[in-house]
Nucleic acid binder design. Structure first.
Lengths: 340, 340
DNA sequence: ACCATCCATTGGAACGTTCCAACCTGGTGG
DNA sequence: CCACCAGGTTGGAACGTTCCAATGGATGGT
């Protein structure tokens, strides 16, 4: 194979021009659907391009046009359906606007994520969307100076980047209000640790409990946005001997961990203990899980993120915008009246 | 804003060279870690680059080097955990080899997918990986001529592209053997429709039933790789009045649909009917679902796909390779002895 | 018949890199 | 003392596009 003439070299705009008997400029015009081209030439160019299997080189194109039509997206956890739903929203909005998506997961570490972001910057993506980032706000802002940037599902008041989040404080309040309405008084919250939105949910939980006059009965145990996080949480509640009648988990996966931990101890849901999750993912809806959950508009979060991006890239907006989406409650079978 | 001097223009290699008092060639050498550079100059260049916030333009770079270090990946369905796990494998292997991933979903339609592939070709990705494609083999082969291409979870004997699949025929056999061993005779298979791997599973099911001398008791109903697909399947079985004692669903999501359909009719699993899924995703492992399932090595499938790609891109392999991974059975609570 | 106008088309300069051949500058061996 | 070499550095061509100013014909008004 070594000395073989390179027959596989990809055709360039010049090859097409030569074959069609026109200049490369004319080919360029045709490929970009300019309307000043005569029908005869246009047909000739298209025929030549078709015959050669020509595809414009996007690298060369964006080198001169200074636009890539690519948006970089970092996802904190691919296994969490919440994030994939947000991504689905981004994909849809991207496609509708002729944009491509470069996806990366930062291995759930801030370092891996900044590395991913750096690659995006080198690729000169038109913008970057962080879905549930673990990177601190200061670092994010620095990047925001260099590139349009929107953070989804991670709160910030930054004057330089955009964001779209669910009102998590209110989401937590909805959960507490439901439980209190059902007669619960001793309520525990298992947190999402350092994950996106975790601290807002804790804050909302505390505030709501205080609002109900139950501040001193609020239990908060450290967890994580995973099934294991929920299991650990239940373990903690047990070992501390303060079992509540209701548990509000930071997300659905943690809630499923809670269900699991409770089942392992023979505790019946919702007769003995009520459980409520967050996100209202497909998981919660499964008949066999049947989890009451705080609903987040994930798809809308994705499309909104992309639109915020485009407002800068296409619309030229300079100032920061922060969009808040409203949560609502989806009541299923995992919540019931408090035992008397 | 209009007449404002463009202070935001990104620094180029020339800016760095000027600031460091060297030629652009020298900067290039430093950025690529060449070892023929003196320590003094190297330090000067790095300092200048740091100070200016310089990041090499990947487009310009790959325009001349004819390498992008990007691999394009199409995913048929983001919501299916099987696919995201495969993607996770690809990501890991990609990162380990200094590659980036460009992800796209073709909206589950062949047209959307070929469009996505076309974009990859324009971007001059070093290769393309299709995860569970809906595109027909002939079209795929055409693309394989132009670009390195590997198909994951979609069988092909193509002499031009690579593939990595699970031995689905054997997987189906494992399922049948388990059920027959438990005394089942009337067994239904709900198919995955036109999805990747569906036809192999049907074939394996038929062959295994025949091997057990149960060919005429095998029931095959058309389904889909979704929860709805499983529900429809159960509906069909009911309306045709041929309820089997065991159902083998084409994947876990369909199996969950089956569980749901059966529960809605008061049929108890596994006492009345045994259910078995395929993929052994996280879903199957949830305590509340507890589904027996045929296990696929999804992460390995992803890393293998990426490695096959690199064998061509880096190693220069020209001929096609087809890798088959072995399935195994994960037995949980949804299968039991046939009712007498 | 002549000039201004308009339209389709063209050549060449960018874009920001890499790569190669050529160039210095000391040292080293004959 | 000169030729040679090696290590460090450099200029310029190339990569495949877009964009702009310029060109050449045809058209139309006077």
């Amino acid at each position: 194979m070594r000395g073989m003439t390179d027959t596989t070299r990809k055709p360039t705009i010049n090859d097409v021009a030569a074959k069609a008997g026109v200049s490369k400029s004319l080919v360029s015009l045709v490929m970009n659907n300019a309307d000043s081209v005569s029908d005869r030439r246009r047909a000739a160019v298209l025929a030549a391009a078709e015959e050669l299997g020509y595809r414009p080189n996007a690298n060369a194109r964006s080198l001169v046009s200074q636009k890539t039509h690519v948006v970089g997206v970092t996802v904190s956890d691919f296994r969490n359906p919440f994030f994939t739903d947000v991504v689905e929203g981004i994909t849809t909005a991207a496609k509708a606007n002729g944009y491509q998506m470069l996806i990366n997961t930062g291995d759930r570490t801030p370092h891996g994520e900044t590395e991913a972001i750096d690659t995006f910057l080198q690729m000169r993506t038109d913008g970057i969307i962080l879905v549930g980032t673990a990177v601190d706000n200061e670092t994010i802002d620095q990047i925001g100076v260099v590139s349009p940037l929107v953070s989804a599902s991670h709160a910030t008041r930054s004057p330089v980047i955009d964001s779209v989040v669910t009102n998590d404080v209110k989401g937590a309040r909805l959960a507490v209000e439901l439980l209190v309405g059902l007669g619960h008084r001793d309520i525990a919250h298992i947190t999402g640790g350092k994950g996106a939105g975790a601290s807002e949910r804790v804050r909302g939980f505390r505030a709501a409990m205080m609002g109900e006059g139950l501040a001193e009965r609020a239990i908060v145990v450290e967890g994580e946005f995973t099934e294991s996080g929920g299991i650990w949480g239940v373990d903690d509640l047990f070992s501390s001997g303060t079992m509540p009648t209701a548990v509000f988990a930071a997300n659905d996966q943690a809630a499923i961990g809670v269900l699991r931990g409770l089942a392992a101890r023979g505790i019946v849901v919702p007769d003995d203990v009520s459980v409520i999750g967050y996100d209202d993912t497909n998981l919660a809806a499964f008949e066999h899980i049947n989890l009451t959950s705080v609903h987040q508009q994930r798809f809308l979060m994705g499309t909104t993120a992309m639109e915020l991006m485009l407002e800068r890239v296409v619309g030229g907006r300079q100032s920061a915008r922060h969009v808040t989406l409203e949560p609502r409650l989806t009541v299923r079978g995992s919540t019931g009246r408090a035992p008397s």
